[in-house]
């Protein structure tokens, strides 16, 4: 694996290998000594054009636990803010000897552009409304840990699918791994082209093994996607009553950060069905596995 740009690039075998390695990495995370010498002498640059402390520290922890050197390059207060182009930044990183660049960027496809301009590996940590492949991998890992499998599961991805990189990556990856994915939300926010679609959350709940809630941003109200936050939560928010309509074994996921009260109520977020905290923990293991596969060989 040279780059990790899209969850759609992973075959079922490749994705399963990542999850298997992540399981080994997770075992390391449970030990007193959490560090591995694997990537000694390798340099990983975290190139973040968006504020995302959660994702950045997750990648930073992953790289450090594999003994890589980590350089954090945040766009704020740097040459980027002074107008440096992505291409010039790429050359700078190249000159620093970056073996891998983890990039978070507001423009869809920016990691693809970067991959043309650096020799090292590029890892997409979220690009615009395109993809967030490591989030999908950690979600798949979480589902597999909780449910024992992914193949054959019925997964509902609920919310602002149109603007969600998490939804795109998950739809691709979970389908590759054999799940039946349904995208759920109001028609203005759920495009037809990405997979099976439903506008009726209540009808779907009794037949769902996994419900993945997406963050719905307040600004969607301003461009006529939604009439109001209240109407959205009434139709598509996951509350206690809806939680009880799920099968006994079903789990509730959310990539965070949550809008409590909007797409999910505190009762649901804090219930034992919720995997939200595990998702964060699993993020480090999955990212360790990805970094190993990108940098652990010739």
């Amino acid at each position: 694996m040279k780059h990790l740009l899209s969850a759609g690039d992973l075959t079922a075998a490749a994705a399963t290998e990542i999850l298997d390695i992540a399981a080994e990495m997770a075992a390391v995370q449970g030990r007193e000594i959490k560090k591995l010498p694997t990537l000694r002498g390798r340099t990983v640059v975290n190139l973040f054009y968006e504020d995302s402390t959660r994702t950045r520290i997750s990648f930073e922890a992953a790289a450090k636990r594999l003994s890589a050197d980590v350089i954090n390059f945040s766009a704020k207060g740097s040459s980027v803010e002074k107008g440096e182009s992505l291409k010039d930044t790429a050359w700078t990183l190249q000159a620093m000897g970056a073996d891998a660049v983890v990039i978070r960027h507001p423009a869809s496809g920016a990691p693809y552009r970067l991959a043309n301009w650096v020799n090292g590996s590029v890892l997409n940590a979220g690009d615009g409304t395109h993809e967030h492949p490591t989030q999908a991998l950690l979600d798949a890992y979480t589902i597999r840990s909780r449910m024992g499998r992914i193949d054959g599961l019925r997964v509902a991805i609920v919310g602002d699918v149109l603007h969600s990189r998490v939804a795109r990556s998950n739809a691709l990856l979970l389908k590759t791994l054999g799940a039946k994915v349904t995208l759920v939300g109001p028609p203005t926010l759920v495009p037809q082209e990405l997979g099976d679609v439903s506008y009726d959350l209540d009808a779907l709940l009794p037949d769902s093994d996994v419900v993945m809630m997406l963050r719905v941003q307040k600004e969607r109200m301003h461009s006529s996607y939604l009439p109001s936050a209240r109407e959205y939560s009434r139709r598509y928010g996951l509350d206690g009553a809806r939680l009880r309509r799920l099968p006994e074994h079903a789990i509730v996921m959310h990539p965070g950060p949550m809008n409590r009260g909007m797409e999910i109520t505190p009762e649901v977020a804090d219930s034992p069905r919720s995997t939200i905290v595990e998702q964060v923990t699993n993020g480090v293991s999955v990212r360790m596995a990805c970094l190993y596969l990108l940098l652990g060989g010739k």
Binding site: E24, L36, T38, Y292, G296, G297
Partner: peptide, 20 residues
């Protein structure tokens, strides 16, 4: 499994990680 501790990782394509 000693894969992640090998001193020759860079000399070959990425190796499979076994179960410890």
């Amino acid at each position: 499994d000693i894969t992640l501790y090998r001193d020759d990782l860079r000399q070959q394509a990425v190796r499979k990680v076994g179960h410890t």
